[in-house]
Design a protein around this nucleic acid. Structure first.
Lengths: 187, 187
DNA sequence: TGTTTTATGATACACCGTGTATCATAACTT
DNA sequence: AAGTTATGATACACGGTGTATCATAAAACA
């Protein structure tokens, strides 16, 4: 683990630069030379930290996802609507990144990674329930995919409902059927 | 409209070559030089027919989808599990097409078109139900997105369950909660 | 504080893919 | 048979990627 301030500073600048450029011109058209210039960093320096533009984006997105994970403590299962509300508040705050992730532009592999991580998390969280009628792996994948799709719809339609309403919808449309199928009602 | 046999032959070869290379190495890594070589066609000739690799893929997929649409059976509503089974049988039969579509390689616009058409179809089919607690547009989008995601999971995991089983899962995981929320039980 | 280690900036370079231009030749049309 | 058009081959400019090198600045260490 590196604690060198120079490393931290450079990586921070690169992430910051990517976030800025994405807002200005989207993701695909950004070149690494452009990125380094925006970050005030040498071109070759980029490759000393990230093997590709996608890797940098992945880092940026993973930090955002981790931040969301911190917003969703385990005890929140009790209130799905509130959990959903927090998800959509976070999505609105980081909508430019979510748009990249969901538009699939260059971040397709990244979306799959994020999705796989989320599926693993769900399976960890509900793996001790009574064996469901539908394979848990499918249930987990469905939960994650449906949530991502709902966020994508909401952002692409310019947030036509406020986060509390979306939280309710998330709870009724996604979480309640999921909990019913995962055997939660027996616990 | 060009009827010149040379044009037809060249375009056919390019589409064929793309289909072959996609199966071998995916979409992204294919270069236009590679494509032209596989097609047995000059490099510059490619640009005389398609402005980009994406345009060629779009042409290929549109033709395949038109062919698929002609084979799709008309109305079958009564049995969700049977409807689901047919969906997965069809997905298995056209899996290479579905894989390209779902992997999103340059075909995102087309996937969105297909999705939008499916959403419209769902809304037309359930638009006369009693007003649901959740906006019908969201319900329809969720239904389509969840179905596509389930097909994608199934294909990417090499069809670990047979179509009848997937049809049951589709009915329980997707269709039953959808029908409950759309107010079907009152009809 | 002085020394060592390491990250950075600047630059040059090879490599690859794209898209355009050119022209002789082959294939098609009438 | 004569005219038209698509093709193949080739060359080229352009831009982006990833690597190598080296002097310098910054951090860590003693």
């Amino acid at each position: 683990m590196t604690t060198d301030p120079r490393v931290q500073r450079t990586q921070q600048r690169l992430r910051q630069a990517l976030a800025e450029l994405v807002l200005q011109q989207g993701y695909e058209s950004i070149s690494i030379r452009e990125l380094a210039a925006q970050a005030g960093v040498g071109y070759a320096t980029f490759f000393r930290h990230y093997p590709s533009k996608d890797a940098l984006l992945l880092d940026l997105l993973q930090r955002s996802i981790q931040e969301m994970a911190r917003l969703l403590p385990p005890g929140l299962d009790a209130d799905p609507a509130e959990e959903g509300r927090l998800i959509f508040v976070h999505a609105a705050q980081h909508q430019q990144l979510y748009r990249i992730l969901l538009s699939g532009g260059g971040a397709l592999a990244l979306l799959e990674e994020v999705q796989a991580a989320a599926v693993a998390e769900v399976m960890r969280r509900f793996g001790r329930q009574t064996a469901p009628a539908i394979p848990l792996e499918i249930l987990a994948h469905h939960l994650v995919a449906a949530t991502i799709a709902l966020i994508g719809w909401w952002l692409q339609h310019d947030q036509p409902y406020p986060p509390p309403r979306m939280g309710q919808i998330y709870a009724e449309l996604i979480m309640r059927p999921f909990l019913a199928l995962v055997g939660q009602e027996r616990g």
